[in-house]
């Protein structure tokens, strides 16, 4: 416990505390006008909306992928399993370049989507695709160990008590997985919110349309406006913390109820 707090303090709490303190050195008016510019507000919508969508996609497909990887046998399973971590290992810029190579209207996949009038690159959809990609490992890798650890006896017990498969899943498996699912969701969301490197390649970065908040923070620092950057950064930080708190609180509450 002591080590936990010490290490967290050194690496995380002190720097972030210093950052928040720095943000408080500006006057309230400066802070408020920096974080409520129309362009900035428009970017919040895209950043939060896009992150929520991406995290939701990851929740559904991540859970599915984890389930398939743990429970079923199929050829190439090991390879698929190993591929899951790639979105972390590839630098975000490389991921962005690879995605735009695929999804631009001249790209490998994009040219076929273009036939149906679907445009991915340089649109909001492109932002969601990039955010889904970079958050993909979270849900899979949080659900997987819990699923692997889940004893077959429990399901068998449920079955021998006459429950059918659906009931077993709903009553036995889902509650066991629920904390992991929420964790994965929260993490995928949080990560998507701050992502910059991959998104700027596949998004058009047009203000009011396809501009994400982290890009605006970069733009602020480019004009040596550290305070403005810190102000927007603080808003993102607090918003993310509140969302995480809600999700973690929910999880804590349910685990108490079930536990």
């Amino acid at each position: 416990m002591g080590f936990t707090l010490l290490y967290m303090g050194l690496v995380f709490l002190i720097p972030v505390g210093a950052f928040l303190l720095y943000a408080t050195t500006m006057s309230w008016e400066t802070f408020w006008s920096a974080v409520t510019q129309r362009q900035v507000v428009a970017s919040y919508k895209l950043s939060f909306g896009g992150s929520l969508m991406a995290a939701t996609i990851n929740l559904v497909f991540g859970a599915l992928l984890a389930w398939v990887l743990v429970r079923y046998r199929f050829p190439g399973k090991r390879i698929v399993d190993a591929l899951v971590d790639l979105p972390f290992a590839l630098p975000t810029a490389v991921a962005g370049i690879a995605l735009v190579t695929l999804y631009a209207s001249t790209g490998w996949v994009g040219q076929y989507l273009d036939v149906f009038g679907i445009r991915v690159a340089y649109t909001q959809l492109g932002v969601v695709v990039a955010l889904t990609y970079i958050g993909l490992p979270f849900v899979v890798r949080t659900v997987q160990p819990v699923l692997e650890d889940l004893e077959a006896e429990l399901e068998e017990a449920s079955a021998s008590l006459g429950a059918d498969r659906l009931t077993t899943i709903r009553r036995v498996i889902f509650p066991a997985l629920f904390p992991a699912l929420l964790t994965g969701y929260a993490l995928a969301f949080a990560r998507a919110l701050g992502e910059y490197g991959s998104v700027v390649f596949i998004s058009g970065n047009l203000p009011f349309r396809t501009e994400i908040t982290p890009l605006l923070i970069v733009a602020k620092t480019e004009q040596y406006d550290y305070h403005g950057a810190a102000a927007i950064g603080t808003v993102m930080l607090i918003a993310a913390f509140v969302m995480l708190l809600i999700i973690n609180g929910l999880q804590w509450w349910t685990s108490r109820r079930h536990g």
């Binding site: 190579t101 790209g107 690159a121 700027v200 390649f201 970065n205 047009l206 970069v218």
Partner: peptide, 20 residues
Amino acid sequence: VPVLDPAARGATNTFVQRRL
């Protein structure tokens, strides 16, 4: 302007490689 790349060389690549 359909795309505003954050950096000059990124824009070059948009023009050259994406053929935009």
